[in-house]
Amino acid sequence: MARSIDSIVAAHRTARELRAAGKPIWTYTAEIRPIINESRDQSVERVVDVANRIARTLRERLPAAFFDVTSDDYEMHLDEAVEDLESYTVASLSKPGGEDVEAVEMLNGRLEELYDWADRARVWLG
Rank of each mutant, 00 (worst) to 15 (best):
Q42S: 08
E80K: 14
R120I: 07
G22I: 06
V44A: 08
D119E: 14
S4V: 02
A91D: 11
V50Y: 10
K95R: 14
R33F: 02
R53V: 02
W26K: 01
E99V: 10
G98K: 11
T89W: 06
R56H: 12
A2Y: 08
Y115F: 15
E112G: 09
T70F: 10
E31K: 12
V101F: 11
E60Q: 10
S94Y: 10
R16Y: 04
T14H: 06
T89Q: 02
K23G: 01
G22P: 09
D41W: 08
D119H: 05
F67N: 03
D41H: 03
E105A: 09
A65W: 01
V90M: 09
Q42K: 12
L58A: 09
V44M: 07
L85V: 09
V90S: 12
L58E: 09
D49Q: 15
L78A: 13
D119N: 11
D79E: 09
S43W: 03
A103K: 06
K95A: 08
A118C: 06
M76L: 13
S92V: 03
V47Y: 04
I25A: 01
I8Y: 11
V44Y: 05
L107P: 14
L62Q: 08
G97I: 12
I35D: 11
T29K: 10
E38F: 08
T27M: 10
K95C: 04
V123M: 08
Y88L: 14
G97K: 13
R120Q: 15
E75N: 05
A121T: 08
G98C: 03
A65M: 00
